[in-house]
Amino acid sequence: MALLETVLGAHLSPREKLYALSLLSVAVIVATLLLAFAATFFAKAEPIFRKEGLGVYTWSVWLPSEDNPEAERYGLAAAIWGTVYVAIIAVAVSLPLSTALALLVTEYIPSSKLREVVSALSDAMAALPTIVYGLWGVTVLAPLLRDYVMEPLYECCRFIPLFSYEPTTGQSILTAGILMGIMSVPYVASMIREAYLLIPRSLREAIYSLGATRAEATRLLLGYIKPVVIAAALLGFGRAAGETVAVSLVVGNTFTISISPFAPGYTIAALIANQYGNAYLYTYMESALFAGGLVLLLLGVVVNVIGITMMQRWLRNIHGK
């Protein structure tokens, strides 16, 4: 009882304590579910850990065998590489676009009705099914990037390692990263927009009173919300790393580790989606896929905890707590 009073606060009334206890119970359930996820994934991945050790994360190989389980070899290095590469490109694309969209809505559109329309369209983009983005990416974006970006750069700059892979279909790490960047724009922009609107009015007035232009004021105010911008980028990174359907349609789905973003690749999420349906045919494939899921789980938890912590600290600072 004393521990509950310490957590919930002794000053609360019995009804308030009951309400707080119910909320605490929900938090405990959520934390327990997360631990259960991690335990399940680890238990499912244990066979491949016993067989391959940490090699499952350092090798780039995918050799299933129905007849001889000992001949099976699984390594997730290419999928891990592709996951990180796609997410980095997605952040590089989405962060400037999201910042521009947030500033446009909050600072530069004079009409309140027009601001509402743009915000509604942005929210509608966030609500679209990912398969819609994937189909658009494979039919429009991939050929467009191949014909007007990849092939010209390959023809003129193939001696540079970054452009050294000859594009064929357009399905590549670059296409997947740009598509995920576009998909992340509404998500990241909404966080930056909300933070920008929370900037104290007194700070805005102080900046303009010093004779700053709108562009100068915008630059200073963006600096003020820099922790939120970084946090939004981290959360966007986590979202891009975990995307499945859209990425699997445009990434190429091949076990390739290349510095060139023009090369096709694989992500962990796409690998799980593509291979899990027939994993039951093999002794160790399902276990290898759960080992990949562990990486996504760890990456998602770490990135989201860091991002949310940064946002909470910024909110406490602006509210003086």
Rank of each mutant, 00 (worst) to 15 (best):
L162N: 12
S65C: 04
I29M: 10
A36P: 12
V86H: 02
A206K: 13
Q275R: 05
G277Y: 13
L12Q: 04
S25Q: 05
Q275I: 12
V302C: 08
N278D: 10
V303Q: 02
G293N: 06
I199T: 08
A263Q: 00
A263V: 01
L104K: 07
F159N: 12
A87W: 03
V28L: 14
G134W: 04
T169Y: 14
M285L: 09
I182H: 13
A206P: 09
L296F: 03
Y196P: 03
T213N: 10
L63A: 10
I88R: 04
L179T: 03
M180Q: 09
L35T: 09
R239D: 04
S25L: 07
R73C: 07
Y284P: 10
S202E: 15
P96A: 04
P14W: 00
T168V: 15
L121P: 05
A39W: 07
G236D: 02
L23H: 11
R15V: 11
I131M: 14
L210H: 14
V30Q: 05
F41C: 11
L210Y: 13
T309W: 08
V138I: 14
E52F: 02
G211Y: 09
M285A: 04
V302S: 11
G223A: 04
L104N: 08
T169P: 14
L33F: 10
H319R: 14
L294C: 06
W59F: 14
E72S: 06
G53L: 12
V229E: 00
P261S: 03
Y284T: 03
Y224V: 01
L296S: 04
I257A: 02
N274Q: 15
C157I: 01
G277K: 13
I192V: 10
A217E: 02
A36Y: 08
R193K: 15
A241D: 07
A273I: 02
L179D: 04
E194T: 14
V295Q: 08
L97Q: 03
M285W: 00
E107D: 15
G181P: 14
N317V: 11
E46L: 06
G211T: 10
Y133L: 14
L141D: 02
A189E: 07
A10L: 05
L33M: 09
M191D: 01
W59R: 11
L104R: 06
I272E: 12
I109Y: 04
L153C: 09
D67I: 05
G181L: 08
A71D: 13
R115A: 03
G177V: 01
L97P: 05
L97T: 03
G9Q: 05
G236Q: 02
C157T: 02
L289V: 02
I230M: 10
V26L: 15
R201C: 09
G82Q: 00
V140S: 05
I109A: 05
G265E: 00
T40A: 12
E166P: 15
H11K: 12
F255V: 00
I257T: 04
E16R: 15
L153M: 13
W81T: 08
V250H: 02
Q171E: 11
T106N: 07
G134D: 13
Y133R: 11
I109C: 06
G242L: 03
A217P: 01
I80L: 15
Y208W: 13
L220W: 01
A87G: 12
T169A: 12
L162T: 14
I178E: 08
E107H: 05
V228L: 10
T58W: 06
